[in-house]
């Protein structure tokens, strides 16, 4: 199914390729967050699997939820797989934003699934997942996306899933296969990664960021003691993008972004 944001091989709506533009512009999945779409030259290339990495309180879940709500508004079925927090609580928090529409859930455009419930139904235990169980998990997510016709997926969080997949090679295999399955289904996905405040890497094992197509990094920074939320696109395959830092604010109408002022100083997570 072609969605409204599946632009032909020309500049996505609202952007121009410019003098340094690529020969072909891949169809985009507009996040609906204007600042993010601007720095991604129209949105995430459709079918990309993107890591949203950040420490606590940086806005990872809110950004991911807005991505889904904006997609559902555009007629793209959107799926949220929650690992750590009950969906009911997430929906309650989401209802504080003006952009949230409960009717999107009622009409099935925005679907929430709790992964622990899936674990239970599949009979997957509490401990480390075996190779066979990882295979079952990938197929279950794929079948869910396929049966719903979901074009957007958020897994919150990948970190919690990876706690149960201990070996690097198994994580690599899980990520590669999940990414491939979702890409074949035309589903653009955000995988939330919880990291510390001063990370040396963007994920639990450091393997994940090498596999994904994109990394959106969020962190808190201090200026004169005040905390600012900052976002930066570290990597995004299939598009050129800004590498600058932006301050992000979670407002009732959605996420807004402004350039991170430096005043001649360096800044970073």
């Amino acid at each position: 199914m072609e969605s409204p944001s599946d632009a032909p091989a020309s500049a996505p709506s609202g952007t121009t390729p410019g003098l340094m533009g690529p020969a072909t512009i891949l169809p985009r999945c507009a996040t609906g967050i204007e600042g993010l779409d601007n720095i991604l030259e129209g949105g995430i290339p459709r079918g990309n699997m993107v890591l949203v990495a950040g420490s606590v309180g940086t806005g990872k879940t809110t950004l991911s939820l807005e991505f889904l709500v904006r997609g559902a508004e555009r007629g793209e079925r959107s799926l949220f797989i929650s690992v750590t927090e009950a969906s009911s609580k997430l929906i309650q928090n989401l209802s504080t934003f003006e952009f949230f529409r409960r009717d999107l859930i009622e009409q099935g455009s925005l679907v929430f699934v709790d992964l622990p419930v899936i674990y239970d139904r599949l009979g997957l235990g509490e401990e480390e997942l075996t190779g066979e169980e990882i295979d079952i998990l990938i197929r279950t997510i794929r079948d869910l996306v396929r049966s719903l016709g979901a074009q957007r997926l958020v897994l919150d969080s990948l970190t919690s899933v990876c706690y149960r997949i201990r070996k690097d090679e198994q994580i690599r295999d899980f990520m590669l296969r999940l990414g491939q399955e979702l890409n074949e289904l035309g589903c653009t996905s955000l995988l939330v990664s919880e990291i510390g405040p001063n990370p040396a890497r963007y994920s639990l094992h450091g393997v994940e960021e090498a596999i994904v197509d994109g990394v959106i990094l969020l962190w808190n920074t201090r200026r004169f003691g005040d905390i600012l939320r900052v976002v930066q696109i570290v990597k995004m395959r299939g598009t050129s993008h800004s590498r600058a830092q932006y301050v992000l604010e979670l407002t009732p109408i959605g996420i807004l972004m402004a350039p991170h002022l430096k005043g001649g100083r360096e800044g970073g997570p």
């Binding site: 600012l228 301050v247 604010e249 407002t251 807004l256 972004m257 402004a258 350039p259 991170h260 002022l261």
Partner: peptide, 11 residues
């Protein structure tokens, strides 16, 4: 919080 001032104007 200069960026926040910018963002509130934008809001």
């Amino acid at each position: 919080a200069l960026e926040e001032i910018m963002l509130r104007v934008e809001y």
